[in-house]
Simulated scan of single mutants.
Amino acid sequence: MTGRPDDPAPNPHATEAQVQAALADNKLAQVLYHDWEAETYDDKWSISYDERCIAYARGRFDAVAPNAVLPYERALELGCGTGFFLLNLMQSGIAKSGSVTDLSPGMVRVATRNAQRLGLDVDGRVADAETIPYEDETFDLVVGHAVLHHIPDVELALKECLRVLKPGGRFVFAGEPTTIGNRYARRLGQATWKVTTEITKLPFLQGWRRPQEELDESSRAAALEAVVDLHTFDPADLEGMATRAGAVDVHAETEEFAAALWGWPVRTFEAAVPDEKLTWRYRMVMYRAWLGLSWLDENVMRRVVPRQFFYNAMLTGVKPGASGR
């Protein structure tokens, strides 16, 4: 349930010199940034391993691969983070056992710890998605969430996915930013951060301000985030990459338009204020608003807004050979 003994140790407190070096070394930046975020990542993004996130993860899978034959025997997650996607998919019945990989030792440690707590059959390795350290035809399913946009050579990573998949095996990736969606989401987030951190300087709102050292650390993390986010995607371009990598039955979907316009300012505001100000009632109101806007996206906006304007892209493909699942 833990990483391999020869995996590097997490480094959650990068020095200024290391951060400066990472600005010129993308993979070092990936490790430092995600080690930095690992222990607080679930809280930052409201990730859980209960009915709410199980339904969310399963919904993403079903949206792009509705006809998959379940369950898969063994699944691999690339760029696992804290294990959000695979662990919740396993709880929903998508796969019986799994492996999680990430460049960040800190993320692998948290993901395997989460799996152990949930009683899931999962092992973990520190690994590069461009050189997956497993034998050919090891897995029945490869998944990832918000990972392709961090990988320098996406097409190479997709080829690696196909290599480690058994014939007829499937990959499913979700949570990838579209080019247009990322543009408006970033601008909304930056504006919200600036307004919130400036307004909370007022004397009667200082109780809503995080300590300056926490805000400074968030700003340093944001500087690395700009380095580790390498790509945005047009859905058609994603389909082209997967096809060139050798996949068949390739298909991309998109989601979140109104929900993204709402969600990015909300998440940014929450990152800028003390946790104790965000009551359970507040969180439920925000969550229900997001659900309502997601319903609007699915039932109204999808019919009138081109798919490339939605924020999240999802991609699936199958390894040629036996019948796809």
Rank of each mutant, 00 (worst) to 15 (best):
T254R: 03
V248P: 00
L70T: 05
A127T: 07
A222Q: 11
P5D: 04
E276N: 11
V248T: 00
Q206S: 10
R58D: 10
A95P: 10
I47T: 00
T2C: 09
A55L: 07
N26E: 15
D121P: 14
A22F: 01
I180P: 12
W264H: 02
E214V: 14
V318I: 09
W208K: 06
D297S: 12
R220Y: 01
V304N: 05
P105A: 11
F233S: 10
D62V: 09
T279E: 06
V304C: 00
A260W: 00
Q212W: 10
E160M: 02
R281C: 11
L86M: 05
E270I: 00
F171V: 01
G93W: 04
G181I: 05
F173W: 05
A21L: 00
Q18T: 03
E239I: 11
V266A: 14
M286D: 05
R52G: 13
V305M: 06
E276S: 09
A29L: 08
A115K: 02
Y56R: 09
W290T: 14
E225F: 12
V31S: 07
S104E: 02
A29R: 02
A322R: 11
V228E: 09
T279K: 07
D136A: 05
G292M: 12
G59N: 08
F84H: 06
D275S: 14
G175W: 05
P105F: 07
A313W: 04
D234Q: 08
E276A: 15
E137L: 00
T179R: 14
P274D: 03
A272N: 07
D249Y: 03
L120G: 09
L103I: 11
I94A: 04
E51C: 15
I151P: 02
V227H: 00
F257K: 00
F139P: 06
M1N: 01
A29M: 03
Y287I: 09
D62F: 14
V300S: 12
S218M: 11
Y56P: 03
Q206R: 12
I180C: 07
G169R: 03
D237S: 10
A245V: 02
G317Q: 04
A157R: 01
L141H: 12
D62W: 02
I180D: 01
W262V: 00
E270H: 07
T268N: 13
R60N: 15
D128C: 04
R283G: 14
Q190R: 07
P167I: 07
D237V: 13
S92F: 11
I199S: 12
E77C: 10
R52A: 15
V108W: 03
G263D: 00
N182E: 05
G189N: 12
M284G: 13
P12C: 12
Y49E: 08
T254F: 06
E256I: 06
D237A: 15
T101S: 14
K319F: 10
G106T: 01
Q308E: 13
E256K: 13
E39I: 05
V19M: 08
M1E: 08
E37L: 11
L118Q: 06
T178W: 03
A236C: 03
L120C: 09
T268R: 08
D7T: 06
A24H: 04
L291P: 04
M286A: 14
M284H: 06
L261A: 12
T243G: 10
T232D: 04
N312V: 08
E77L: 05
T82V: 12
S218N: 14
P8D: 02
S323K: 15
G263K: 00
F139N: 02
